[in-house]
Every structure is written in structure tokens, then in C-alpha cells.
Simulated scan of single mutants.
Amino acid sequence: MTPAPLDRRGLWMAVGAFVIWGVMPLYWHLLKTVPSLQIIMHRIVWSALLVAGWLFWKYGRGWLRETLAIPRAAWMLALSGALIAFNWGLYIWAVNAGHVVETSLGYFINPLLNVVLGVLVLRERLTAVQWLSVAIATCGVLWLTFNYGSFPWIALVLAASFGGYGLIRKLVGVPPVRGLGVESLYLFLPGLAVLLWGEFHGAGGFIAHDGMRGWGWGVAALLVLGGALTALPLIGFADAVRRIPYSVVGLLQYIAPTLQLLCGVLVLGEDFGSDRAIGFVLIWIALAVYAGDGLLRSRRRPLPA
């Protein structure tokens, strides 16, 4: 049976999301003077205001009730919101602590995990060549894991948390922007409470008060803009996982860690020896095999009558 053609909008939404995520280490590096917990809470609060505000403006108050009325949506979106908040927190801490290369390893492992979840949980099927690409990528990930120099717990936890988030969003069947809006509202009040506590107990600097100097208007603007940069790729990702097979999403996702790796090594000056290079080359070969197989199958597909 000839595989169905991929949804082009879903494909480009996935690519766009992964490109934004790939260059985000440079953005968070600009905020290295801000404590990681503060960055995370600002991410939550400003993205919640942006997404929920837009939904209330376009659909009125009914959108929240309608979304939560979808079977399993309330508790599944609460779980996905907790997973993505945890993922953000660990990621930002790791970037500003000088572990960009290890975070890229986590997001190299994550697409492989997505392929496995797509096959085992969602009953998706792979061709023989696609299985070969998965096997090559697995060898690359195992090489990186055992030659990293220390147990890569940051990478493994990032992969598991984001893999779980994507799977839940695939299963819940909620429109992507509405789903992100519900997740944001679940996280908004806790995030706002932490920010306010920090501002009035000397742990924050978004607003200068009582003689305390703030971080400055430039940093404050970056924190607010971080909300938009949080929401947009998540919307694209959630839309993509509903339109294209999860196994395809998993392999496209190698775009983000490749860009993260380049940012960490070429811009931020992190170490990248020959042992690590071998693992990354194996993963890139796997991507080339998968992409080449898809291109050949699309050319061989007969035209409609």
C-alpha cells in the first residue's frame, strides 16, 4: 500500500517550531543575569496572557468551557502543562549553567523516543528503510551516551518529559491554540505567585522598588518577548502532531538539537571533541537516509487519474 502524502501545513509548522527551538539557547543566554526560576515564571505568565487573551478576544469566555468539555481534556492538559513547565525549567537552567551541548543531546534522543512511541503506542508503521534510519540513529545516541564522560541525566530527563508532552497532545485531540491556552491557565496563578513573591523578597528584579535596582528595560523586554517565543513554536508543534504521523515528527525534530549544538559549540564555545562528533555524524546519516527514502517514495507515487 502506498503511504498517504504528508500534510504540507503540518510539515512546515513542525519545521518552523524546531528551528525556533534550535536557536533559543542564544536568546536565553542574553538573560543569564536573571535567575533561572524567574525566567521560567516569566515564560509562563507572559505566554499565558498572550494566548489566553487572544482566545478570549476571538472566541469569548465560551472557549474554555467548550475545551474542557472534551473527554479527558481537563486532566490530560493539566498533565501536559506540568510536563512542559518542568521541561522549560530544566532546559533554561542547563543552558545558563553551560550545558547547551548536553541539552542538544537530550533533544537528539527525544525524536528517537517519539518514533518508538509512535510505533508502540499509536500503532504507526515504518518502512524497512525507515527502520534502518532508526537503527543508525540509535547507534549514534548510544555512542553519545556511553562516550559522554558522565551520565547524561539532563539529556535523558529532557527527552522523556518532552516526549511525554508531545504524546499527550497527540492523544487529547484538542485544537492546538486552545490546548496551549488551557495549559497556560493551569500554570498562570502559580507562576504569578512565584514572581510576586520574588519581587517583594529580593529575589526578583523585573520592577525596581525600595531602592533595589531592577534588571533594566532591555532585560524586562526580553522576558516579556520570551512569552511570545514560548507560545508560537508550541502552537506550531501541537498543530503539527495532529496533522502528520508522530514518527515523522520525531525524525524532523533533529533540526532543533542540530542548531542547538551549533549554537553551543560555535557561538557559546562549549567543548565538542571527536568522540561526540562520531555520534552526531551517525544521527545526521540517519536523517539523510530517512529524508532520501521519503523523497524517492514521493516521486514514485502514481499521479491521481
Rank of each mutant, 00 (worst) to 15 (best):
residue 248 V to L: 08
residue 301 R to Q: 12
residue 218 G to R: 11
residue 295 L to K: 13
residue 56 F to S: 10
residue 127 T to A: 14
residue 54 W to E: 01
residue 275 D to T: 08
residue 151 F to C: 13
residue 156 L to G: 11
residue 214 G to P: 04
residue 195 L to Y: 01
residue 92 I to R: 02
residue 60 G to F: 14
residue 26 L to G: 14
residue 201 H to A: 10
residue 11 L to A: 07
residue 279 G to T: 07
residue 70 I to F: 09
residue 243 R to K: 12
residue 293 D to F: 11
residue 305 A to K: 14
residue 94 A to L: 01
residue 186 Y to N: 07
residue 263 C to L: 05
residue 63 W to N: 08
residue 70 I to E: 12
residue 132 L to V: 14
residue 17 A to H: 02
residue 256 A to Q: 03
residue 239 D to I: 02
residue 210 D to G: 15
residue 99 H to F: 05
residue 45 V to D: 01
residue 186 Y to F: 14
residue 10 G to Q: 01
residue 169 R to T: 07
residue 272 F to G: 01
residue 258 T to D: 12
residue 33 T to E: 13
residue 1 M to D: 10
residue 215 W to K: 08
residue 113 L to P: 00
residue 116 V to W: 06
residue 65 R to M: 13
residue 184 S to W: 04
residue 53 G to Y: 05
residue 101 V to A: 00
residue 281 V to F: 15
residue 53 G to E: 09
residue 20 I to V: 12
residue 11 L to I: 09
residue 97 A to P: 05
residue 168 I to A: 07
residue 97 A to T: 15
residue 230 T to L: 09
residue 265 V to C: 06
residue 235 I to A: 11
residue 96 N to P: 04
residue 72 R to V: 05
residue 14 A to N: 09
residue 3 P to V: 09
residue 57 W to R: 12
residue 102 E to Q: 07
residue 189 L to F: 08
residue 77 L to H: 09
residue 264 G to C: 03
residue 5 P to G: 07
residue 182 V to P: 03
residue 228 A to N: 08
residue 58 K to S: 13
residue 135 A to G: 11
residue 299 R to E: 08
residue 93 W to R: 02
residue 64 L to P: 07
residue 164 G to I: 03
residue 116 V to S: 02
residue 29 H to W: 11
residue 240 A to P: 10
residue 191 G to K: 02
residue 190 P to F: 08
residue 197 W to C: 09
residue 109 I to C: 11
residue 255 I to G: 03
residue 29 H to L: 05
residue 128 A to F: 13
residue 115 V to K: 01
residue 244 I to P: 01
residue 180 L to C: 06
residue 181 G to A: 12
residue 282 L to P: 10
residue 106 G to C: 09
residue 280 F to E: 06
residue 150 S to C: 01
